[in-house]
Computed example of a mutant assay.
Amino acid sequence: MSKDFERAPNHFTDRIGASDWPVEAGRYRLVVSRACPWASRAVIVRRVLGLESALSMAVADPIQDSRSWRFTLDPGGRDPVLGIEYLGEAYRAREPSYDGGISVPAIVDVPSGKLVTNDYPEITLNLEIEWAPLHRDGAPDLYPEPLRDEIDAVNEDVFRDVNNGVYAAGFATRQRAYERVATRLFERLDALEDRLSTRRYLVGDTITEADVRLFVTLVRFDAVYHGHFKCNRRKITEYPALWAYSRDLFQTPGFGDTVNFDHITRHYYEVHRNINPTGIVPIGPELRLWATPHGREALGGRPFGDGTPPGPVVAGEEVPDLPPA
């Protein structure tokens, strides 16, 4: 009997701003991998809202080992703030008997070294709502209250069929299960193509949480999911509206300047040895295409609404530049 891929629920679901975890500048550390789409959501939202000085960020090596995400990109192989070699140490500081998965994004309480949450769907909403007093001047509203029902509905469809759909296809072990989820993925991409043919953003006329959640999958699609996860009916570059929309967001401050394609490709192709036994990392696709004109301005819309773009990337958080178009 074929069975669809199921994503394990997050074990630590505390919300900062409630109970024992007050919102406090400098108290917490966001741990991410630039390879991971779920973590990339938090990286984008943190940057767009200007939370860099309030919430520090640790970037893990894109290649895990058997002990979990590791801090080998830092001097001495330890995170300079938390003082740990592996993210799993923060999980066990919170719950010594924990033996489940170690995932990013994760927010860690710096004074105690304990994990607060790995609840990726809620982390960005938490940053947008409870962390509002610490947002930069001119920060946009990524989760406007009048549009939340529509944003939530779009997010539900996108998560089921696209964000999680690529994984369901990639990790399927039965032909029928693979065909079912892959077909549903492309049906949803077709629907999104229609939706974005006449509007610049998914909900309303500004960037919202919905755009962040879709973007992190689209930006990885041709580089990883098309080949590695067998999502090969079409590339995103073959969808006129989706490809232009992806480039529009990529070229918007806070989006493309957080993307590290080297981390993305090396993680998927080197870590998933059950799918890619040789560990060979492909040389494509052509990244300079991300810098080409998108023409989406003709649809109107204001990326940051009544707000302003974020400033330059803070020192130490830069990603490699794309080759010129």
Rank of each mutant, 00 (worst) to 15 (best):
L49W: 04
G284I: 00
I151E: 04
I16W: 15
D137S: 02
A325D: 11
H294C: 01
D157M: 12
L242C: 00
A291Y: 08
A153I: 03
V259N: 03
R213C: 05
A58N: 11
G165W: 15
D65S: 06
G204Q: 11
R247L: 05
M1F: 13
T278Y: 00
V224F: 02
D61W: 10
R78S: 10
T183N: 07
E85H: 15
L51S: 08
V219G: 03
E6I: 12
R233I: 06
L82D: 13
P22F: 15
R41Q: 08
V259G: 03
E95G: 13
R46P: 03
V110T: 10
W131S: 07
A39E: 04
I44F: 05
P9A: 00
G170R: 08
D20L: 14
L30H: 13
Y143K: 12
A106H: 09
L82A: 14
L249T: 02
L73P: 07
T208I: 14
E85Y: 14
E85F: 12
F229C: 03
H228Y: 03
V212W: 03
A153V: 03
D14I: 11
R7E: 12
P140T: 12
T206H: 15
L214F: 01
V104G: 04
V23E: 05
I123K: 04
P22D: 07
L289N: 08
I275P: 00
P323T: 06
G76A: 13
Y225E: 10
T308I: 10
G311E: 10
A90F: 12
G254C: 06
L242H: 00
L242V: 01
G204N: 10
V181F: 09
N163H: 15
E128T: 07
D109S: 08
A25G: 08
A153D: 10
Y178G: 02
P133Q: 01
S246N: 07
K235Y: 00
I151K: 04
I236E: 01
V59K: 08
I63W: 05
R78D: 09
W243P: 00
K114G: 03
W243I: 01
S68H: 12
S40V: 02
G83I: 12
H263N: 09
S103W: 06
P320S: 06
A191E: 11
Y201F: 15
T237C: 07
Y269K: 03
G165L: 15
I236H: 00
E130Q: 08
P309E: 05
L299H: 13
H272T: 02
A169L: 04
P282S: 01
F250H: 11
D141W: 09
E238H: 06
V81K: 14
N232P: 13
D194Q: 14
V271K: 05
D190Y: 05
W243D: 01
R34M: 02
E52Q: 12
R296D: 01
P75L: 09
I207M: 10
S19T: 12
F304S: 04
G76Y: 06
A8V: 11
L73W: 00
H294A: 00
T183H: 06
N118F: 04
R148K: 07
H11P: 06
D321C: 07
Y201P: 10
V59H: 09
R188E: 11
A298C: 11
R67E: 14
D61K: 12
A210T: 04
D222A: 12
V259E: 05
I63P: 10
R29W: 15
D194S: 14
V108Q: 12
I207H: 07
V81C: 06
G307R: 09
I264V: 15
R266E: 08
A132I: 00
P75E: 15
